[in-house]
Structure formats: structure tokens, C-alpha cells
Design a protein around this nucleic acid. Structure first.
Lengths: 221, 221
DNA sequence: TCGGTTTTGTTCTCGCGTTCACAAACTCCT
DNA sequence: AGGAGTTTGTGAACGCGAGAACAAAACCGA
């Protein structure tokens, strides 16, 4: 194909590439903050922990933002990736379930610094409604619909116990939320147009345990 | 091949399958607790949120634990998967970085209930060394080596800020830890024999944002 | 201006993972 | 006992992603 880098035409980026773009973005931010103006695909690949050929192929899905013989302009590429991901705009987020994990998420600075704004913390437990976490009141779960409408919330985070997660997801979907980040250890059933990403701490540990068991060759003591 | 289900011979299980075994295990636990004695691959697949053919192929890597025309014995299969993963034994774990997230992890009951035992909480900040979190003293990071040796720790969890993560990982590796679960938003460099799994909250949100942006078709706001 | 050097963008190949489809094997009912 | 019905285990086809390899395109120095 020609090297036409039509800004909006980057349709159908492979899922595996999408998952790596945020990694590249973070590496570029680090490079930019260290004063680096230009970088090669090899340098960026090392910083992102991937193969340089894979990096170049990933970036080629966005367009031809590099210069042969030179490399990539750090700030320019950073902006292009940020725009492609969508973090140049502001994404309102609600967090449901303000237990240990929910509080940690509410306090996590990495969200706000990357275009995500926590607009509300919700919990079904009335005893938590007094608390203030990360500068926000913990509000009743029933307020979800009003909050979602007022702030045009598209992304919801579930940090409840497993038994409550499906109900919360159903309510979120009913409120027009179409992207869910689920920390509850359960499988969520949602309509096709709703995206769900799952983060399960104990599953990650179990995967490590499997490999660990293999390393020690069954000689577990 | 014959249906020989030699218990120890299940070499080289595909990585994608390994990542799903914990999901099956949890579904089986739920089924077992609800009194289900036997289940078909279709039932279990629904409970785990996967295709039934994929489930059967995954299970076939472990051996032939089902009965044609009948299905799987829930408790038997549950035990076989647990044994394969390695969660029938006890895995001592250290958590480094007792900020918001580290505290949430320390309090997470899903670890202990699945064979993981948090043996120590470490933090480099002396101001935290007074605190007691989840019934454990927060101890100086320098104690890592002694703790790792005394408890034969093979798995470490990093919940520090990004800047400290590589140093922590290096120290862990030096102490003989060979599996690391990393919550810090940074790329870790470790020797080949060390397994690292990464959980990055803001990356997950960014992936959701990308798809969300596509749904609303650029008509943000 | 022109060859040499560097680095990107892309093509090609290979391997893994997913899914379909079906034979084998087991149960149940008559 | 035997046939009908069920469900597992697996062979085969297909599609996606990773990585090697190379041509195209830019810069540099004389």
C-alpha cells in the first residue's frame, strides 16, 4: 500500500496490537520526560519489552509515523497513539464496590493521569455511605442510573464480591454503560455490544503456581 | 492415542490452556458447593464462559477424566485440576509495597482460600513499619532475604510504585524467588527462568477506551 | 550529485490456538 | 441382549499472531 497516513482510516487494528499500544504509550511518555526527542523502533521496543519487528508492525496499523533512516519523533508518536487509543479525551468512570480493592482503585493515580476521571464511588452497604474515599463521597448503589446519565458514563469498574457482580453488571448495562472492567472473580454475562475485561488476582497466582510446580519438578516439599 | 491417563505424564500443556484451568477450577468449586455431582462439558463450559469443544480439548491435556455419555464427576475433576495447577499444596507468598493496592492484596481472601499463604508484608518506607495489615506486621524491605529463606518463598508480589519495581524484582531474584506477579506499571527485566505476570489497571482501562471510542464512532461527547 | 548507511514498512513463513465434526464409548430402555 | 440416545475425546481445517528477512526511503558525507 501507499504510505498514505489518513488519520481516521485506521480501521480494524488487531486485538493483540491494541493491547500493546498502551505499553508503547507509557514507554514514549517515559522517553519524552527524559528529554528524548527521537527514538528508533529498536530503542522503543526495548523500553516496551517487545520485539522490534513486532513493534514496527503494530505501529504500521496506525499509519506511517516514522522516518526511514531516522526513527520516530517521540512526542508526535506519543500523541498519535494517545489519539488512537482515545486517551486524549476524558473518560468518566464509576467504581462500584468500595471495599479494600475499590478503595485502592479510587486512590490509584494512574487513572486520572491517563484520561480517566472517577466521577462516583458506589456501594450497596449503607454503612459505607458516610465515608469519603479519595476525595469522593461513597454513594448508594441506587444512584448509578442518575450518575451514569448526568456524566455520560460509558465505563464501569466492578470491585464487589463475586456474588454481587452479575447484578451490578446488569444494572450497568441497563444504564447504558458499554465497557466494564471486572475485578470480581466470576464470569459475567453481558450483551454482545458490551466489552468486559477481567482482572483476576488469584488466577494470575495460580498460573504462576503451575509453572513454579513444573520448575521444582514435582519435588514439592 | 490410547486413553492412558498416566497421572504424572501430562507434559507440555499449552499456555492458553493453563490460563483457563483456574477458571474451570472455580466453576467446579461453585458447582460442587451447589451440590452438583456430575456435569457435562457443555454445562461446565457455560459456567466458565467458554466453548465446550475448547473445554474438552483443554481437559484432554490432563488426561481422560470424563465418561462418555455421562460427563465429568465434579469433585474428581476438581481435584485433578487443582493438582495439575499445584494448588493442592501450600504456596508461601511475600507482598512488597504496602500502599493502597498492597493492603488490598493483603486483605484479599481469595488468596488464602486457594492455597496461597501471605507470609510477609514488606515496605521500604519506615513510617509503615508500625502498621499491622491483615494481621501481619509490615516489615522492612531488607528482611526479604531472610524471610524468603525461612519460608522457602517462590512467589513474590510487587505492588510498589513503578520506579521501585525493578529494584524489588532484582532483589527477589537474588533471593531465589522465581515467580513474580507485578502490579507496578513498568516493564521488568528478569532472567529467563523467572516467570513474570503483569497486571496493569490503567492498561486495561485504555483497552476498553479504545473499543469504546470505536463504538461511539469518533462522535465523542 | 551520488554512493553508503541507517531505519522503517511490509511480505512471507511458521506455529499456536480455536472451532467443527465425527468416531468411540457409555447409559438407558425395551 | 440390543438398539437408541448422549457425551467425550480427537483428528482436521482454518485463522491469527510472531518473527525473520528484505526492499523502499530517508539522511550523510564527499
Amino acid at each position: 500500500m501507499t504510505a498514505r497516513t489518513s488519520p481516521e482510516s485506521a480501521r480494524d487494528i488487531p486485538e493483540a496490537t491494541v493491547a500493546r499500544l498502551p505499553v508503547y504509550l507509557r514507554a514514549l511518555v517515559t522517553l519524552s520526560e527524559s528529554g528524548t526527542v527521537t527514538c528508533s523502533s529498536e530503542e522503543l521496543a526495548v523500553a516496551a519489552g517487545v520485539n522490534s519487528a513486532k513493534l514496527r508492525k503494530d505501529l504500521s496499523y496506525l499509519g506511517s509515523y516514522g522516518t526511514r533512516g531516522v526513527g520516530y519523533d517521540v512526542d508526535y508518536l506519543r500523541y498519535q497513539i494517545a489519539r488512537e487509543i482515545g486517551v486524549t479525551q476524558d473518560w468518566p468512570v464509576v467504581i462500584v464496590g468500595i471495599g479494600n480493592l475499590g478503595q485502592a482503585l479510587a486512590n490509584y493515580s494512574g487513572f486520572r493521569s491517563r484520561g480517566f476521571r472517577v466521577v462516583a464511588l458506589l456501594d450497596a452497604n449503607p454503612e459505607r455511605h458516610d465515608e469519603v474515599v479519595a476525595g469522593l463521597d461513597v454513594r448508594p448503589f441506587d444512584h448509578l442510573e442518575q450518575i451514569a446519565r448526568d456524566h455520560a458514563v460509558a465505563i464501569g469498574v466492578i470491585a464487589t464480591p463475586a456474588v454481587a457482580a452479575q447484578d451490578v453488571a446488569d444494572r450497568m448495562v441497563a444504564c447504558g454503560i458499554t465497557s466494564i472492567l471486572n475485578f470480581a472473580p466470576t464470569v459475567l454475562n453481558v450483551p454482545d455490544q458490551v466489552d468486559v475485561r477481567k482482572v483476576d488476582l488469584s488466577i494470575e497466582l495460580q498460573i504462576l503456581a503451575y509453572h513454579e510446580q513444573r520448575k521444582t519438578h514435582g519435588a514439592a516439599t
